[in-house]
Computed example of a mutant assay.
Amino acid sequence: MRSARFERAYAAHYEPIFAYVLRRTDSVQDASDVVADVFLTAWRRVDDMPDDEETVLWLYGIARRVLANHARSRRRYDRLAARVLATGTTSTATEARDPDGAVAAAFDRLRPEDQDILGLVAVEGLTPTEIARALGRPAVYVRVRLHRARSRFARELNAEGIEM
Results as ranks from 00 to 15, higher is better:
Gly136Ser: 13
Arg133Leu: 13
Glu15Cys: 07
Arg152Lys: 11
Glu53Ala: 09
Trp43Asn: 04
Ala42Tyr: 08
Val46Tyr: 09
Leu146Arg: 04
Arg97Phe: 15
Val103Asn: 01
Arg2Gly: 14
Arg79Asn: 02
Leu59Ile: 04
Glu7Tyr: 11
Val84Leu: 12
Asp30Ile: 03
Val66Arg: 05
Leu110His: 03
Ala4Val: 15
Thr129Phe: 04
Phe107Val: 00
Val84Ser: 07
Gly101Lys: 07
Arg137Ile: 12
Gly88Met: 12
Leu57Val: 12
Thr94Leu: 06
Asp108Ala: 12
Glu160Met: 13
Ala104His: 03
Arg150Pro: 07
Arg143Val: 05
Ala9Phe: 08
Ala159Tyr: 07
Tyr14Phe: 11
Trp43Ala: 15
Ser32Pro: 01
Asp100Ser: 06
Val28Ala: 01
Trp58Leu: 04
Arg65Phe: 07
Ile62Arg: 04
Pro50Phe: 10
Ile117Tyr: 05
Phe39Asn: 08
Ala68Lys: 14
Glu130Asp: 05
Ser32Lys: 01
Arg8Glu: 14
Ala122Val: 09
Arg109Ile: 10
Arg97Leu: 15
Asp98Thr: 04
Arg152Pro: 06
Val123Cys: 02
Ser151Asn: 12
Arg79Val: 03
His147Ala: 15
Glu53Asn: 10
Ala31Asn: 00
Asn158Asp: 13
Asp51Tyr: 05
Gly88Val: 08
Ala71Trp: 14
Trp43His: 02
Asp108Trp: 09
Ala9Glu: 11
Val21Thr: 01
Ala42Glu: 07
Ala96Met: 10
Leu80Glu: 00
Val121Pro: 05
Gly101Leu: 06
Arg23Asn: 09
Arg152Asp: 15
Val123Ser: 13
Leu157Glu: 08
Tyr20Phe: 15
Ala105Leu: 09
Thr127Gly: 03
Pro128Thr: 07
Ala63His: 02
Gly161Cys: 10
Ala105Thr: 00
Ala105Asp: 10
Ala159His: 09
Arg97Cys: 08
Gly119Lys: 01
Gly101Tyr: 13
Ala154Asp: 15
Leu40Lys: 05
Val144Trp: 11
Ala19Ser: 08
Asp78His: 02
Ala132Pro: 04
Val21Cys: 06
Ala71Met: 14
Gly61Val: 13
Ala68Glu: 15
Arg148Glu: 15
Pro99Tyr: 10
Glu54Asp: 14
Leu67Trp: 09
Ala68Ser: 14
Phe6Met: 14
Leu120His: 11
Asp114Ile: 06
Val56Lys: 03
Leu80Ala: 09
Arg83Asp: 08
Ala82Gln: 12
Ala159Cys: 07
Phe39Asp: 01
Ser73His: 01
Ser73Gly: 12
Tyr141Cys: 12
Ala9Leu: 13
Ala102Leu: 03
Arg2Met: 14
Arg152Thr: 12
Val46Gly: 09
Thr90Phe: 11
Pro99Gly: 06
Thr94Asn: 09
Thr25Val: 00
Ala106Glu: 00
Val142His: 01
Gly101Cys: 09
Asp33Phe: 00
Asp30Gly: 04
Leu157Cys: 07
Ala82Trp: 10
Arg83Cys: 06
Tyr77His: 02
Thr41Cys: 07
His13Ile: 06
Ala102Thr: 02
Arg5Ala: 15
Phe107His: 02
Asp52Arg: 15
Ser3Leu: 07
Thr90Asp: 04
Ala36Glu: 12
Val56Pro: 02
